[in-house]
């Protein structure tokens, strides 16, 4: 498991790890999806190109996850993989695979309103990158 769910008095968060920043950002996206629905049995039948930018690493992470949330919540897509590439220090693109979700196959466990800056943590410990993110549900 490359992430775990964290408790918050009113809402939900997660801690994710990665061998690189790219890896970490992908794992954070996977963690976010697992809060919203059960991500098992996702068929890899389509590809989407996602992009995000920020003014620093933290805002890039929040903006990236809000971009993923838009695809999951509004466009009703569920992803199973993310290949994140940094284009510039604070801009990324991502090839993501997955499928259009249906309420029958991937019922929503809880709707996430937004990804927040609350207690946001993004750091490198030894060779490993780690992030903590809280979302409003």
């Amino acid at each position: 498991m490359n992430f775990e769910i964290l408790e918050h008095p009113a809402d939900v968060g997660f801690r994710a790890w990665g061998d690189s920043l790219e890896d970490l950002f992908g794992n954070c996206a996977g963690a976010l999806i697992s809060i919203i629905l059960d991500p098992s049995n996702v068929e890899r039948n389509q590809r989407w190109d996602l992009e995000a930018e920020g003014s620093d690493r933290e805002s890039l992470l929040v903006n990236w996850l809000n971009e993923v949330l838009y695809y999951v919540d509004t466009r009703r897509i569920v992803f199973d993989s993310f290949a994140v590439r940094f284009q510039e220090p604070f801009r990324l693109s991502c090839e993501a695979t997955g499928e259009h979700r249906t309420p029958e196959k991937h019922p929503v466990r809880v709707s996430v309103k937004a990804v927040t800056y609350h207690q946001l943590l993004l750091s490198k410990t030894g060779p490993e990158w780690i992030a903590e993110v809280f979302v409003d549900v």
């Binding site: 003014s55 805002s59 809000n66 937004a114």
Partner: peptide, 27 residues
């Protein structure tokens, strides 16, 4: 409403330096 807030938190984070505002919490 969720998206309006998301959009404007992102915008205000960008423009706060322009107005010389510093806060203890970006949210």
């Amino acid at each position: 409403g969720h998206q309006v807030c998301t959009d404007y938190v992102a915008l205000m984070n960008q423009v706060m330096p322009k107005y010389g505002i510093q806060l203890p919490d970006r949210q």
